[in-house]
Nucleic acid binder design. Structure first.
Lengths: 243, 243
DNA sequence: TATCTCATCTTTACGATGTAAAGATAGGGA
DNA sequence: TCCCTATCTTTACATCGTAAAGATGAGATA
């Protein structure tokens, strides 16, 4: 990696200085001083603070800027502090992805609940899916960039599982049939895979700028959301359903 | 990053040794010696050699192991040698992705040509798409992991563009209509986006292990390929085409 | 043929990162 | 009151990408 700004290192070093000096001295009540600087020693809620810092870094500097040390800097602690709470980078990313999945699930549920007509209801989740990814591309990137994620972590596994369950459930409602927990017919599995693949594929292609070619060739002013709608509802003229 | 084995550094150092000693001596015909060691000085085709080395590293160590220095080691040159040919890591990855796209396009074209019945023909490209990704997950990962890619590079732009053109063309044939170069109707765009999103989404979910949940719940022994087929051909029972 | 030039490759150097290990600090129970 | 231990900081190390300067030699030029 090249250059990542090293600001806010000043904040840390000044605090570190304060500490070492006070250690050399007899023992002033540093608790009171740290209380007003918003960052008490022995933080108390460093875990949450780090996750929030990570989210901020991710939104500000993107995926490339999201490093353990950058997060520690953002939270105003030493670069090794995150280790104690998350083990390693995979741990931090996994917990952050879990946060993302929870936001994501909440957004989809809210959108689904707000729908009134059947058509609205059918489009609510896909739209919310894409909208979340567009609003939080970094988060979405983490959630679906498996390489550096540990799905065996309970929080992540649970949140991702909930996401899948919501999808399967929605597909079941569309098909007006009960989707069993532990067994699927091929057609049911195909329906779930189709819905998920369609929306997930559209989203990743969109975020990666791969749909620009198409959007530019469409009638002036056609948005990605409009294309999504058309993709989901347009009549299928070919012999095969998906072409 | 953690530990990447440092083997083959021996190969390099031995050659370096050979060189320095021979330099100290008067001037033996090192050309002949190097000819049988397969790695001539002033390589002559280092660019190609580096790309092949990169492909090997990618298949062996995965995306995480694909570093500039690892590629240089694999090719038996100094760690800074790639810079001269590719500028930086983005350059190397972009050129490698271009190689991938060319392989990818060739595989799809071959598969498409081998089809005889209309159904086979409709399924040929999607199947080849997924098959390529499964056979070369690292390559596929690079090709569609845009973060560290420079699409303004002619070779990459061209190869990716060809891929898109092939897709648009195939969709046009399915719909039995001519797809214009510079203008699309909303329905045409939707059809292209649908085909691409569906297959790309399926592939990424599959590679990321996200479809395991579904595959395990399906009738015993159902393969990913079978699920893909079903997804593309299964009757659509819901009111909306994609749910 | 001898020399020169410049593309090619190597060395060296620097800041950044992830991670391990040891040292400091302080909150809370004995 | 004192000590234990979770929490945080320091220090250290291997590795990475990249820049810059030093070798090397293939081919042009004279």
């Amino acid at each position: 990696m090249t250059k990542i700004d090293t600001k806010s290192a000043t904040a840390r070093s000044s605090r570190a200085l304060k500490r070492t000096t006070s250690t050399a001295a007899s023992r002033p009540p540093r608790r009171a001083a740290s209380a007003k600087t918003e960052t008490p020693y022995h933080h108390g809620a460093l875990r949450e603070a780090l996750l929030q810092a990570a989210e901020r870094v991710l939104e500000r500097d993107g995926l490339a800027g999201l490093t353990l040390r950058a997060v520690a800097r953002e939270a105003g602690v030493s670069h090794a502090a995150p280790t104690h709470h998350f083990g390693d980078l995979t741990g931090l990313l996994s917990e952050l992805a879990a946060v993302g999945f929870r936001q994501f699930n909440a957004a989809m549920a809210a959108s689904s609940n707000a729908a009134s007509t059947p058509l609205e209801h059918a489009l609510a989740r896909p739209k919310a899916y894409v909208a979340y990814a567009q609003a939080h591309p970094g988060m979405y990137g983490i959630m679906f960039r498996t390489e550096r994620l540990d799905y065996s972590r309970p929080s992540l596994h649970e949140a991702a599982e909930a996401s899948f369950a919501g999808l399967a459930n929605a597909v079941g409602m569309m098909r007006q049939e009960q989707i069993s927990e532990d067994a699927l017919t091929l057609n049911q599995g195909a329906a779930i895979a189709r819905a998920w693949s369609l929306v997930h594929g559209f989203t990743t292609l969109l975020l990666d700028g791969r749909l620009k070619d198409i959007l530019e060739r469409l009638p002036e002013g056609t948005t990605a959301e409009r294309l999504l709608e058309a993709m989901l509802t347009a009549p299928i003229t070919a012999k095969l359903p998906t072409c």
